[in-house]
Amino acid sequence: MSVQLKAKMAKGLKMSDEAFITLLVVSAAVFIFLFASLLVPNFFQFQNVVNLVTNNWAVISLGVGVTFLLVSGNFDLSVGGIVALSGVLAVWFAQAPGGANALASGFGMPTWMAMLFALFGALAIGGLNALFVVRFKIPSIIVTLGTMLVARGIAQVITHGSQRNTNLPDNFGFLGNIYLFGTSIKLPVVLMLVLVCVAVVIEKRTIFGRLTFWIGANPVAARLSGIKNARHQTHLYLFSAAIAGMVGILLASEFKSGFSSRGMLMEFDALVIALLGGVAIAGGFGSVVGMFFGALILATVTSAATGLVLSPDWQYILKAIAVFLAIVAQTWALTLKNR
């Protein structure tokens, strides 16, 4: 692979670092899939590829917001908490009042309104992130670690530490359970794919995308070049929170329940797939396409491992190994290319 690449470059076909890393991630994803197919019976099937994507729609969606923030030089660890909070809020707002017990009674809003208000709840957490990071200049990793706990904490209080799933209108389960064209593909999966495509266009073809890179590459130079760093970072936090809010609402709709532990550790998975996809933790570098294939790598590794009689208990260790390998490989490849 790298020999071929070198030959290409020698011919004068210059490749940008980003294209190089993306190609590397895609090749790694393909290679790992083929390798897993050799070991695991029945792994090499088209349906399996589809499953790898559809089973991970939530994390990939969160990864979009997280990737943009990472590129701008900021963390967002609050997305998992927002998933739980928005789901719980949507259910609580939609539950009819006067149920049999405290967990069965809510505000009786129409479904659409409940979901909209739940989204506002998610945006409030995003706003809180922006306020502390942008306004009070507190490191984003600390701020979003805090808001992660705030969001999940509120969800826990509302659900008394468990879940709300009774006394809901019938149409609450509609959005999350639409299947397309008689296939096993649900609406949220399609929404995720649309989101990824839109994000790619934003990243490559809009001023908004470029601002993200400028701020991440050099915040001081960005400010001196007339960029309103604060405003842009606020937008990014609100978008990330909005995506996480929608993911939470769709999951709540799919399961017709608001569960305070939903989305647990999803913020780390979203971070991990972005890093696997070649997004630089220091900012200024990365792509949504890379993140997408990073998600496929992680999904392949974990599902292949489950297929290989490894108990699911091993998945954290596998993820850890995958992340270390990915980061070492990325650094090594870039040094090699730029030597």
Binding site: K204, I207, F213, N218, A222, G284
Partner: peptide, 26 residues
């Protein structure tokens, strides 16, 4: 002054975004 990990093409237009875009599209 510089965005050192970006290219010359990506560095030059930063102070005048209107000139390289139409309604936000590059």
């Amino acid at each position: 002054g510089l965005f050192t990990n970006l290219t010359i093409r990506e560095n030059v237009p930063v102070m005048n975004l209107e000139k390289i875009s139409t309604t936000g599209m590059l």
